[in-house]
Design a protein around this nucleic acid. Sequence first.
DNA 1: GCAACCTGTCTGCATAATCGGACAGGTGAG
DNA 2: CTCACCTGTCCGATTATGCAGACAGGTTGC
Lengths: 287, 287
Amino acid sequence: MTADGSCKPRARDGPVTSAIEPQKARRLYLLLRDQITSGRLPSGARLPGEPVLAAEHGLARVTVRRALDLLASEGLVRRRPGSGTFVQGPAGARPVIGDLPNLLSGLIAMGRATGVRLLSFEYVAAPAIIAEALLLEPGERVQRSVRVRLIDGQPFSYLTTHVPERVGLSYSEADLAATPLLSLMERSGVTADRATQAIGATLAGPEVAQALDLEVGSALIDLTRVVFDRSGRGVEHLHALYRPDRYAFQMDLVRTGDAGERRWTPAVPRPVKPESPRRPAARRPAP
Amino acid sequence: MTADGSCKPRARDGPVTSAIEPQKARRLYLLLRDQITSGRLPSGARLPGEPVLAAEHGLARVTVRRALDLLASEGLVRRRPGSGTFVQGPAGARPVIGDLPNLLSGLIAMGRATGVRLLSFEYVAAPAIIAEALLLEPGERVQRSVRVRLIDGQPFSYLTTHVPERVGLSYSEADLAATPLLSLMERSGVTADRATQAIGATLAGPEVAQALDLEVGSALIDLTRVVFDRSGRGVEHLHALYRPDRYAFQMDLVRTGDAGERRWTPAVPRPVKPESPRRPAARRPAP
DNA sequence: GCAACCTGTCTGCATAATCGGACAGGTGAG
DNA sequence: CTCACCTGTCCGATTATGCAGACAGGTTGC
C-alpha cells in the first residue's frame, strides 16, 4: 500500500535525531551497578521493590527484573523472595589508591601482587597527536606498546605508551613485559625530569572492555601523561585507562599562603602505607 | 505457532545471563565519538565509507548510518554526499583545565564567564557515608545542596555538597547561589585547612544527564572531596561530576629527590594564565 | 565523459526488547 | 492467622532495532 508519497508524514524539518537510547534494562543495570560499586548504595541496603523501581523509572516490572537479574548474577545483589533485594556490596573491593607515577612502587611496597600483560609491541610512524605532544617531527618513528596491568591477578588498567624510537631501542620487548617503563628508561641513561598529566573520563570500547574484563560502555578513568627529560625532549607518552572500581586517584591538599591570598597545594604524597583493606572513598587527612 | 512446549528450548539450567548488549548502533556511535573527542581520529580525517564500517563491525549499513547520523547531528562529523564522512572535530571545545580547589579563581582570572544554578537546598539527616567522611554522629543534620556550574553558559559540573548544620546556617540559600562555598565559610569564620580528594569515573544517571545536558550513560569524572578545618572537624563534603569534554584535571609533575630515591611530586600549580583558546590534551611543561 | 565510489533514501522482513497484566508462593509484622 | 508486600514466572501484544538489498544522485579522478 504505502499510498503515493504522503505515507508516514514523520517530522519533516527536525532531523529526527532519535538519540539512540540505550535499552532500558541495561540502562537501569548500569545505573544501579554504579551506585553500588561507588558506595552510594551501601552494602546490606535493601533497594526499593521491583514495582517501585518500575514506577520510578517508567519501566515494566519485567524490565526491572532483567536489570536486577544481571546484578544478582554478578553477585552485587542478593534477592530474597518475599523479602526484597539487598545490596551484596562489591565489599572487599575498594579501589586501590594511586596518585602519581609513584604508584607502582607504592603498590609493591604494600606487598600487593602486580602483574603485566603485554598485548602489543611495535614500531610505527607517530600519529599526529602523539608527535605533537612529544614535540617530534610528524611521522617520526615511535615504539608503541599496549599493556594491561593486573593487581592480585585482576586487570585494572589498560596502558598505551608511545616512546620515541631512539629511547625505545634501548630495551627489548621482554624487558617491557617485566619491568616498569620508567625504570627501563632510567637504566639506559634517559632521565625523566618533568611530566604533564591530565585526568578525564571515557567509556570502554570493545577492545578495552575485553582486556579489562568489563562491559562495553562502562565508565573508565582516562589519564594522559607526557614525560620529558632534562633537556625538554619528550620521552614517553602514556595513555592509561583505569577501572574506577579498582583504582582511584587520591590526594591530600593543604591550605597554604597568608591570609589574603590562600590557596590549596597538594600535600607531599605520603609513602603509601599498608592500611586496612576496605576503605571509604574519602579518608581522613593526616593529623 | 509456538507449538506445544518444546518450542524455543532455551537454556534451562544456565541462568541465561544474556548480558544485555548495548544496541549496535549506539555502540558504534560511542566508539567513534570517543575516537574523535580523544583525538585519535584527528579533525579533518576522512573515515572509512559506510559499507566498509559495516563490514568491519559486522553491521548492516543502515545501522552504521544511524551511528553516523548521531555524530553528524552533534557536529562531530560532516557528511558530504558522494565524497565521504569527515571528522569535524570537537575543535573549539578542548576541556577547561582545573586541578585543585583553586579552579574557580583561576577561571575567573581567565575572564571566563562562570555561572551557577542552584537546583536544591535543604537540611537533612546525614546519610551514612557522609557522616562517616565528615566524622559526624550518624543522623546529625547537614545542609545538602545541589548546584550546576556553567562556563560560558554551558553546564560542565554537577555538585552535591553536604555541610554540617552548624556551618551551613551561617549563610543563606541566596548566598550559595552567588558565591563559592569556600568563600562563604571563610567569611563566617570557618577556616578550611586540609582536604582529601579522590578522582574516579562514573556514568551519568537520569537527573545528572539532564542537568548537564547529555545522554544517560555518558562518562563523567567523579570527584569526592572532604574538607576539614584547623581542628580536624569536617566542614564540607563535596561530590562533583564533570563533563570530561568540558573539564579535565591537569597537573604538572617534577622529579625530585636524590639519585637513589627519586619520586614525582606535583609542581606548584601555576596561576592559570590565559592561553590560546584551544589546546592539545597535553601541554609542554614549564621550561 | 566515464567509471568507481560515496552518501541519501526507501522497502520489507526477522528478531529482540518492552509492556501490561495475571497468578503462585515466600516473608514478616500485627 | 491474616494481611500486606515481596520475588518468581508465565503469557500475548506491541514496538524498537537490526538486516538485506536496491536505487537515486553527487564527487572524484582518469
